[in-house]
Amino acid sequence: MSELLAVRGLNAWYGRAQVLFDIDLRVDAGEVVTLLGRNGAGKTTTLAAVMGLIPGVRGDVHFGGASISGLPPHRIARLGIGYVPEDRRVFSDLTVDENLAVGRQPPRPGAPSWTPQALFDLFPNLAELRRRRAGQMSGGEQQMLTIARTLMGHPSLVLLDEPSEGLAPRLVEQLARALGTMKAEGLTILVSEQNPRFARSLTDRAYVIEKGRTRFEGTLADLDARPDIRDACLAV
Protein backbone atom coordinates (compact mmCIF):
# COMPACT_ATOMS: atom_id res chain seq x y z
CA MET A 1 0.00 0.00 0.00
CA SER A 2 1.17 3.51 -0.68
CA GLU A 3 2.06 5.84 2.13
CA LEU A 4 -0.42 8.74 2.35
CA LEU A 5 0.59 10.52 5.54
CA ALA A 6 4.02 10.36 7.12
CA VAL A 7 4.93 12.20 10.31
CA ARG A 8 8.55 12.09 11.41
CA GLY A 9 10.08 13.52 14.55
CA LEU A 10 7.18 15.81 15.44
CA ASN A 11 7.86 18.07 18.46
CA ALA A 12 5.52 20.69 19.89
CA TRP A 13 5.53 23.10 22.79
CA TYR A 14 2.94 24.94 24.87
CA GLY A 15 4.74 27.99 26.12
CA ARG A 16 7.97 26.58 27.47
CA ALA A 17 6.64 23.12 28.16
CA GLN A 18 7.27 20.52 25.49
CA VAL A 19 4.18 18.40 24.86
CA LEU A 20 5.20 16.24 21.88
CA PHE A 21 8.50 14.42 21.65
CA ASP A 22 9.58 13.00 18.31
CA ILE A 23 6.23 11.53 17.33
CA ASP A 24 6.39 9.22 14.29
CA LEU A 25 3.26 8.18 12.44
CA ARG A 26 2.47 6.55 9.13
CA VAL A 27 -0.92 6.15 7.49
CA ASP A 28 -1.22 4.23 4.23
CA ALA A 29 -3.90 4.92 1.65
CA GLY A 30 -7.16 3.17 2.51
CA GLU A 31 -6.18 2.41 6.09
CA VAL A 32 -7.97 3.24 9.32
CA VAL A 33 -5.34 4.04 11.91
CA THR A 34 -6.29 4.65 15.52
CA LEU A 35 -4.27 7.00 17.71
CA LEU A 36 -4.75 5.90 21.29
CA GLY A 37 -3.96 7.67 24.54
CA ARG A 38 -5.54 9.34 27.52
CA ASN A 39 -6.68 12.92 27.85
CA GLY A 40 -3.63 15.12 27.75
CA ALA A 41 -1.42 12.44 26.20
CA GLY A 42 -0.90 14.56 23.07
CA LYS A 43 -3.44 13.15 20.60
CA THR A 44 -5.23 16.44 19.97
CA THR A 45 -1.94 18.28 19.62
CA THR A 46 -0.66 15.69 17.15
CA LEU A 47 -3.72 15.95 14.91
CA ALA A 48 -3.84 19.74 15.16
CA ALA A 49 -0.13 19.91 14.34
CA VAL A 50 -0.63 17.81 11.21
CA MET A 51 -3.36 20.25 10.23
CA GLY A 52 -1.02 23.22 10.67
CA LEU A 53 -2.94 24.64 13.61
CA ILE A 54 -0.11 24.66 16.16
CA PRO A 55 2.53 27.37 15.94
CA GLY A 56 6.18 26.57 16.32
CA VAL A 57 6.17 22.81 15.83
CA ARG A 58 9.31 21.04 14.68
CA GLY A 59 9.33 17.95 12.52
CA ASP A 60 8.45 16.62 9.18
CA VAL A 61 4.96 16.02 7.84
CA HIS A 62 4.53 14.55 4.36
CA PHE A 63 1.19 14.09 2.68
CA GLY A 64 0.93 12.24 -0.60
CA GLY A 65 4.69 12.38 -0.92
CA ALA A 66 5.00 16.17 -0.57
CA SER A 67 6.03 18.07 2.53
CA ILE A 68 3.22 20.02 4.17
CA SER A 69 5.24 21.26 7.16
CA GLY A 70 4.70 24.94 7.76
CA LEU A 71 1.79 25.30 5.34
CA PRO A 72 -1.23 27.26 6.57
CA PRO A 73 -4.28 25.16 7.51
CA HIS A 74 -6.34 26.11 4.47
CA ARG A 75 -3.61 24.94 2.10
CA ILE A 76 -3.39 21.64 3.95
CA ALA A 77 -7.16 21.27 3.78
CA ARG A 78 -7.13 21.95 0.05
CA LEU A 79 -4.52 19.27 -0.48
CA GLY A 80 -7.09 16.78 0.79
CA ILE A 81 -6.84 16.47 4.57
CA GLY A 82 -10.12 16.85 6.42
CA TYR A 83 -10.07 17.73 10.11
CA VAL A 84 -12.82 16.98 12.61
CA PRO A 85 -11.90 18.57 15.96
CA GLU A 86 -12.66 16.95 19.28
CA ASP A 87 -15.18 19.47 20.59
CA ARG A 88 -17.32 19.47 17.43
CA ARG A 89 -17.05 23.18 16.77
CA VAL A 90 -20.06 23.44 14.52
CA PHE A 91 -21.01 26.99 13.56
CA SER A 92 -23.91 27.18 15.96
CA ASP A 93 -25.39 30.30 14.40
CA LEU A 94 -25.50 28.73 10.94
CA THR A 95 -28.03 26.22 9.66
CA VAL A 96 -27.05 22.68 8.77
CA ASP A 97 -27.03 23.60 5.08
CA GLU A 98 -24.87 26.64 5.74
CA ASN A 99 -22.45 24.61 7.83
CA LEU A 100 -22.10 22.21 4.93
CA ALA A 101 -21.62 25.13 2.53
CA VAL A 102 -18.63 26.38 4.54
CA GLY A 103 -16.98 23.01 4.10
CA ARG A 104 -17.57 22.79 0.36
CA GLN A 105 -14.52 22.47 -1.87
CA PRO A 106 -14.19 21.43 -5.50
CA PRO A 107 -14.03 17.62 -6.01
CA ARG A 108 -10.56 16.19 -5.95
CA PRO A 109 -9.39 13.51 -8.35
CA GLY A 110 -8.53 10.31 -6.56
CA ALA A 111 -10.57 11.11 -3.46
CA PRO A 112 -14.11 9.92 -2.77
CA SER A 113 -16.53 12.67 -3.63
CA TRP A 114 -19.65 13.45 -1.59
CA THR A 115 -22.89 15.14 -2.45
CA PRO A 116 -25.15 16.53 0.27
CA GLN A 117 -27.56 13.71 -0.58
CA ALA A 118 -24.88 11.09 -0.02
CA LEU A 119 -24.09 12.70 3.33
CA PHE A 120 -27.72 12.67 4.36
CA ASP A 121 -27.79 8.97 3.51
CA LEU A 122 -24.72 8.52 5.68
CA PHE A 123 -26.21 10.51 8.58
CA PRO A 124 -29.99 10.20 8.22
CA ASN A 125 -30.64 12.42 11.27
CA LEU A 126 -29.28 15.43 9.42
CA ALA A 127 -31.67 15.21 6.50
CA GLU A 128 -34.63 16.39 8.55
CA LEU A 129 -32.70 19.22 10.14
CA ARG A 130 -31.30 21.03 7.12
CA ARG A 131 -32.72 24.40 8.07
CA ARG A 132 -32.15 23.99 11.81
CA ARG A 133 -29.49 26.15 13.45
CA ALA A 134 -26.62 23.92 14.50
CA GLY A 135 -26.62 25.39 18.01
CA GLN A 136 -30.05 23.88 18.57
CA MET A 137 -29.06 20.33 17.76
CA SER A 138 -28.10 17.62 20.19
CA GLY A 139 -24.49 16.70 20.81
CA GLY A 140 -24.78 13.59 18.68
CA GLU A 141 -26.33 15.47 15.76
CA GLN A 142 -23.58 18.07 15.99
CA GLN A 143 -20.96 15.35 15.83
CA MET A 144 -22.54 13.96 12.67
CA LEU A 145 -22.65 17.46 11.22
CA THR A 146 -18.96 18.17 11.79
CA ILE A 147 -18.03 14.98 9.98
CA ALA A 148 -20.44 15.71 7.13
CA ARG A 149 -19.09 19.25 6.90
CA THR A 150 -15.56 17.96 6.57
CA LEU A 151 -16.57 15.43 3.91
CA MET A 152 -18.00 18.31 1.83
CA GLY A 153 -14.37 19.12 1.09
CA HIS A 154 -13.87 15.68 -0.53
CA PRO A 155 -10.79 14.82 1.50
CA SER A 156 -8.68 11.78 0.84
CA LEU A 157 -7.60 11.60 4.50
CA VAL A 158 -9.77 12.49 7.49
CA LEU A 159 -8.40 13.26 10.94
CA LEU A 160 -11.06 12.51 13.55
CA ASP A 161 -10.32 13.70 17.07
CA GLU A 162 -12.18 11.61 19.66
CA PRO A 163 -15.42 11.41 17.69
CA SER A 164 -17.15 9.13 20.21
CA GLU A 165 -16.41 11.33 23.23
CA GLY A 166 -19.58 12.18 25.10
CA LEU A 167 -21.92 10.34 22.77
CA ALA A 168 -24.49 7.90 24.02
CA PRO A 169 -23.23 4.36 23.46
CA ARG A 170 -26.14 3.91 21.03
CA LEU A 171 -24.92 6.81 18.90
CA VAL A 172 -21.38 5.55 19.09
CA GLU A 173 -22.53 2.40 17.32
CA GLN A 174 -24.19 4.51 14.63
CA LEU A 175 -21.04 6.53 14.19
CA ALA A 176 -18.92 3.41 13.86
CA ARG A 177 -21.20 2.21 11.07
CA ALA A 178 -20.81 5.56 9.28
CA LEU A 179 -17.06 5.23 9.55
CA GLY A 180 -17.32 1.80 8.02
CA THR A 181 -19.12 3.28 5.02
CA MET A 182 -16.51 6.00 4.73
CA LYS A 183 -13.76 3.42 4.71
CA ALA A 184 -15.61 1.37 2.12
CA GLU A 185 -15.80 4.47 -0.10
CA GLY A 186 -12.01 4.51 -0.08
CA LEU A 187 -11.40 7.16 2.53
CA THR A 188 -8.26 6.96 4.66
CA ILE A 189 -8.92 7.70 8.32
CA LEU A 190 -6.72 8.65 11.28
CA VAL A 191 -8.89 8.60 14.37
CA SER A 192 -7.89 9.40 17.94
CA GLU A 193 -9.62 7.74 20.86
CA GLN A 194 -9.06 7.16 24.55
CA ASN A 195 -9.60 3.44 24.18
CA PRO A 196 -9.77 0.92 21.36
CA ARG A 197 -13.41 -0.01 21.94
CA PHE A 198 -14.66 2.39 19.29
CA ALA A 199 -13.79 1.47 15.72
CA ARG A 200 -12.26 -1.76 16.91
CA SER A 201 -13.51 -3.69 13.93
CA LEU A 202 -12.34 -1.04 11.44
CA THR A 203 -8.87 -0.38 12.78
CA ASP A 204 -5.99 -1.69 10.68
CA ARG A 205 -3.22 -0.40 12.93
CA ALA A 206 -2.91 1.59 16.09
CA TYR A 207 -0.45 3.89 17.82
CA VAL A 208 -0.41 4.54 21.56
CA ILE A 209 0.96 7.83 22.80
CA GLU A 210 1.58 8.72 26.39
CA LYS A 211 3.04 11.97 27.73
CA GLY A 212 3.77 13.13 24.22
CA ARG A 213 5.79 10.07 23.14
CA THR A 214 4.92 7.12 20.94
CA ARG A 215 4.74 4.08 23.18
CA PHE A 216 3.37 1.45 20.85
CA GLU A 217 2.79 0.74 17.19
CA GLY A 218 1.02 -2.27 15.76
CA THR A 219 -2.29 -4.02 15.33
CA LEU A 220 -4.92 -4.13 18.05
CA ALA A 221 -4.21 -7.83 18.42
CA ASP A 222 -0.61 -6.93 19.21
CA LEU A 223 -1.87 -4.37 21.70
CA ASP A 224 -4.09 -6.93 23.41
CA ALA A 225 -0.95 -8.94 24.01
CA ARG A 226 0.59 -5.99 25.87
CA PRO A 227 -1.57 -5.50 28.97
CA ASP A 228 1.24 -3.40 30.50
CA ILE A 229 0.75 -0.71 27.86
CA ARG A 230 -2.99 -1.00 27.89
CA ASP A 231 -3.19 -0.44 31.62
CA ALA A 232 -0.59 2.27 31.86
CA CYS A 233 -1.54 4.36 28.86
CA LEU A 234 -5.17 3.86 28.03
CA ALA A 235 -8.44 4.75 29.60
CA VAL A 236 -9.94 1.30 29.29
Binding site: M51, H74, G103, T150, G153
Partner: peptide, 9 residues
Protein backbone atom coordinates in the same frame (compact mmCIF):
# COMPACT_ATOMS: atom_id res chain seq x y z
CA UNK B 1 -12.26 26.01 12.09
CA UNK B 2 -13.01 27.94 8.93
CA UNK B 3 -9.35 27.80 8.01
CA UNK B 4 -9.22 24.07 8.74
CA UNK B 5 -12.06 23.63 6.24
CA UNK B 6 -9.92 25.08 3.49
CA UNK B 7 -10.90 28.73 3.51
CA UNK B 8 -8.05 31.16 2.98
CA UNK B 9 -8.14 33.05 6.22
Amino acid sequence: MVAALGVNQ
